[in-house]
Measured scan of single mutants.
Amino acid sequence: MTEYKLVVVGAGGVGKSALTIQLIQNHFVDEYDPTIEDSYRKQVVIDGETCLLDILDTAGQEEYSAMRDQYMRTGEGFLCVFAINNTKSFEDIHHYREQIKRVKDSEDVPMVLVGNKCDLPSRTVDTKQAQDLARSYGIPFIETSAKTRQGVDDAFYTLVREIRKHKEKMSKDGKKKKKKSKTKCVIM
């Protein structure tokens, strides 16, 4: 069974824990209790493949930012979460993405942009803004509501699919490099 290491990042209060708990335990946590770091595991079937999701729910508070490099190193894919009623959390996505790329030393890291709290009427981040940002990053965008469960499975499952595509691409690139290195030079 394939294991996928997913990391949920975003500013404090955007609903990272609520999304994760909704996926794992099928219930909505409405009281806000700032996370330092929590880890969850769940076995699911995605596109006919049974897999184990190892999900790291991270601290959004700035005082825990020193811990970010460590979990970013171990993560295979990242859910970059903002709240649709919090423009600052949307603007912060850029910083999370840049930090992930720096730590992973790669421009090509599996990510999904997630606009959470889409059940709320007080939207300050337009869907088109988020779609445009995701398009500019070359990553999928999904709106979710941890409260109603809308888009929750889709967000995590899409990230797994992005990781699969990335692994497939990397193995193809690896095979191309191996083929090239088999060419021999004969000096007579």
Results as ranks from 00 to 15, higher is better:
E62M: 12
T58H: 13
D57M: 14
E31P: 10
Q22W: 07
E3A: 15
G10K: 00
G15R: 00
Q43D: 12
K5S: 05
T2V: 06
E63A: 03
V14Y: 00
I24F: 11
Y40R: 13
D38S: 10
G12R: 05
I55G: 12
T50M: 04
Q43Y: 04
D30R: 11
L56C: 15
H27L: 14
D30T: 05
L19E: 06
G60P: 14
Q43F: 01
Q25N: 04
C51H: 05
T58S: 11
K42T: 08
Y64P: 15
V44N: 03
Q61Y: 03
I36W: 06
L6Q: 00
H27K: 11
L19A: 14
V9G: 01
L53A: 05
I46Y: 05
A11M: 09
V29L: 11
E63Q: 06
E3D: 08
D54T: 14
G10L: 00
E49P: 02
I36D: 07
T2I: 03
D30S: 08
A11L: 14
T50R: 09
L53V: 11
I55K: 06
T35W: 13
I55Y: 07
I21F: 13
I36H: 12
L52K: 13
L19D: 03
L6V: 07
E37Y: 01
E62F: 04
L53F: 09
A59S: 14
E31N: 11
K16V: 03
T50E: 07
L6H: 00
Y64F: 12
V14G: 09
K16Y: 00
Y40S: 13
T20Q: 09
G12K: 02
A18K: 10
E3N: 02
R41T: 10
L56E: 15
L53M: 07
T50N: 07
D30N: 11
G13E: 09
T58D: 13
V7Y: 03
V29F: 11
K42C: 04
L23Y: 11
E31T: 05
Q25W: 02
Q22N: 14
S17I: 02
L56R: 15
Q43E: 12
L19Q: 07
G15M: 00
E3M: 03
A59Q: 14
T2D: 12
L53C: 04
G48P: 05
H27R: 09
H27S: 10
L23F: 10
G60A: 07
Q61H: 10
D54M: 01
I55S: 09
T20V: 08
V44Y: 03
P34I: 04
Q61V: 13
G10E: 00
L52V: 14
E3I: 05
L56D: 14
I46W: 02
F28Y: 09
S39I: 05
E31W: 04
V45Q: 01
G60E: 13
P34N: 10
E62V: 09
A59N: 14
S17M: 04
I24V: 11
I55F: 12
E49N: 05
E49L: 01
S39G: 10
V45D: 09
I55Q: 04
F28H: 09
L19C: 07
D57R: 03
D47L: 01
F28P: 07
Y32W: 09
I24K: 14
T20K: 13
I36C: 09
G10A: 02
G12H: 03
S39N: 11
A18C: 08
T58I: 11
K42I: 06
E31M: 03
I55E: 13
V45A: 12
E37R: 08
I24D: 15
H27G: 14
S39W: 03
G48W: 01
V45P: 06
A59L: 03
V14N: 04
V14C: 12
T58A: 10
V7Q: 04
G10T: 01
T35S: 11
E31I: 07
G48H: 06
T20W: 07
Q25D: 03
G15P: 00
E49Y: 01
K5V: 00
E63V: 02
I55L: 05
G60H: 10
E31R: 07
E63K: 05
D38R: 07
T35R: 07
D47G: 07
D47F: 01
Q22V: 01
L6R: 01
F28G: 11
I21G: 15
R41A: 07
G48D: 06
N26Y: 06
S17K: 06
V14A: 09
V8W: 02
V29D: 10
K42E: 08
P34T: 03
G13F: 08
Q25P: 15
E31K: 11
P34Y: 03
E3Q: 08
G48K: 08
K42S: 09
S17V: 00
V8G: 00
L52N: 14
Y4Q: 08
I24Q: 13
A59K: 10
Y64Q: 15
Q22C: 02
A59M: 07
D57I: 15
K5Q: 01
L19M: 10
K16H: 00
T20D: 11
Q25I: 01
D33W: 04
L23V: 07
Y32K: 10
V14F: 02
E63C: 03
L19I: 07
V8P: 00
V29I: 13
D47V: 01
L6I: 12
T35L: 02
Y40K: 13
D47I: 01
G12T: 04
I21D: 15
V7G: 02
Y32T: 12
G13V: 04
V9F: 05
E31V: 10
V45W: 04
H27T: 09
V9E: 00
D47A: 06
Y40Q: 15
I21L: 15
Q22M: 02
I24T: 14
Y64A: 15
Q22D: 13
G60Q: 02
T2K: 14
T50P: 11
L53H: 09
G13P: 05
E37L: 04
D33A: 09
Y32S: 11
K16N: 01
T58M: 05
L6C: 02
D38P: 12
E49D: 08
Q61N: 08
V44L: 09
V9P: 00
D54R: 13
I24E: 15
D54F: 01
V7A: 06
A11R: 01
L23I: 05
T35K: 13
E3W: 01
D57L: 11
D38H: 12
N26V: 02
K42G: 10
I21E: 15
V29C: 11
H27A: 13
G13N: 08
G12Y: 05
A11N: 03
I46D: 11
V44H: 10
S17Q: 11
Y40L: 11
K5W: 00
N26C: 04
T50G: 09
D30C: 08
I36M: 09
A11S: 05
I36L: 11
T35M: 05
H27D: 09
Y32C: 13
L19R: 00
D30E: 09
D30G: 08
